[in-house]
């Protein structure tokens, strides 16, 4: 696996918002590799920097956000060193994105077809209108929407259908990487399920990699094979999703998240939340940003930033495992 070229490679990526209060680090020194035909989940609370990271990968940062450090490579190419025209061609053909709000991702005054054809028209100059139309029909069939809806306007479709259209547009050019930024958040549970099934089904056929951004812990651990957990702009843990079924040897934050999942089949239901609130990025706690909410926090956590420990194929950024490692080393 390792010798293969990763579809997405993040290396020490930091993204900051240039604000009046100085540079606010929304994403802080994160590294990650995603290979083809895999789904990687990215979980975090609101404001933990997950969408900012998604936009940084697409080079769509707005509101004074800038990549302050690190490199982002998609298919081996550095996204942030391309010029405007290269980027315009690279985006969507190699990487695409499904936006957070399906409701607003479509232009209200253009038909669905026009918005799909725009993709082909922008990327393939020589494609005939007839062929582009045929492809648009094909796309609609892939996402299970009747092609007659090509002539509809976005407001004539339901929320779930609109999200399917957005997904159809995202896979129009067969990209290698699709970033999905909370694609089901605005939808009800039943529609959510059908969209997820659709995503899984398409992914199986097209074999692209997905970076699935969400705050829905159980949903991501089911869908993804690998999960990165983000807290205050850092990956505090990157693990395979199977390990999320138990609380052993995780970051205390991950443990808290696992404990917060209700189990419908369990006889005794004990759900515990994580006390406190996510930190203010303008004024991050010293040391480990999680320490004010951590039940295991020691004096050391308040002053010293923990390093990454590899435990069982997972990367955990926590002082707790210093002791564990010492034990392992000593024995």
């Amino acid at each position: 696996m390792e010798e293969k070229q990763p579809v997405l490679e993040l290396e020490n990526v930091s993204v900051g918002y240039d604000s009046t209060a100085g540079m606010v680090q929304a994403v802080n020194d994160v590294s990650l590799k995603i290979y083809e035909n895999t789904i990687v989940g990215l979980i975090g609370e609101s404001g933990s920097g997950k969408s900012t990271l998604g936009n940084a990968i697409m080079h769509l940062l707005k509101n004074n956000a800038v990549l302050t450090n690190g490199t982002i490579k998609v298919m081996g190419k550095e996204v942030h060193s391309m010029n405007k025209n290269e980027l315009r061609k690279f985006r969507w053909s190699q990487m695409s994105m499904v936006f957070q709000s399906a409701m607003n991702a479509l232009n209200p005054v253009l038909t669905i077809e026009a918005q799909i054809l725009d993709v082909y028209r922008s990327h393939y100059k020589n494609m005939s209108k007839k062929e582009a139309r045929a492809r648009a029909r094909e796309l609609m069939e892939i996402v299970s929407i009747d092609p007659t809806h090509l002539n509809s306007y976005p407001h004539e479709l339901s929320g779930g259908m609109r999200q399917r259209v957005v997904i159809a547009i995202a896979i129009a050019l067969d990209p290698k990487l699709v970033i999905m930024d909370e694609p089901t958040t605005a939808l009800d549970v039943v529609v959510q399920r059908s969209i997820l099934d659709k995503i899984k089904q398409i992914q199986k056929v097209k074999k692209f990699a997905i970076l699935f951004i969400s705050h829905d812990f159980s949903l991501v651990s089911e869908l993804a094979s690998k999960v990165a957990i983000m807290y205050a702009g850092r990956f505090i843990e990157v693990t395979d999703s199977k390990s999320l079924s138990h609380t052993d040897q995780h970051h205390p934050y991950t443990e808290g998240l696992i404990n917060a999942i209700p189990h419908l089949t369990a006889e005794e239901v004990t759900i515990t939340g994580i006390p406190g609130n996510p930190p203010n990025l303008v004024d991050l706690p010293s040391g480990c940003a999680y320490h004010p909410r951590c039940q295991f926090a020691t004096e050391r956590c308040k002053t010293e930033r923990p390093v990454v420990h590899q435990i069982d194929n997972r990367d955990v950024e926590c002082h707790l495992y210093d002791a564990v490692r010492k034990e392992v080393l000593e024995s």
Binding site: L60, K62, R91, S96, M97, V119, I169
Partner: peptide
């Protein structure tokens, strides 16, 4: 969002 989405799609 639809403007950003359109920008992203090229």
């Amino acid at each position: 969002d639809y403007v950003t989405f359109a920008e992203a799609k090229g």
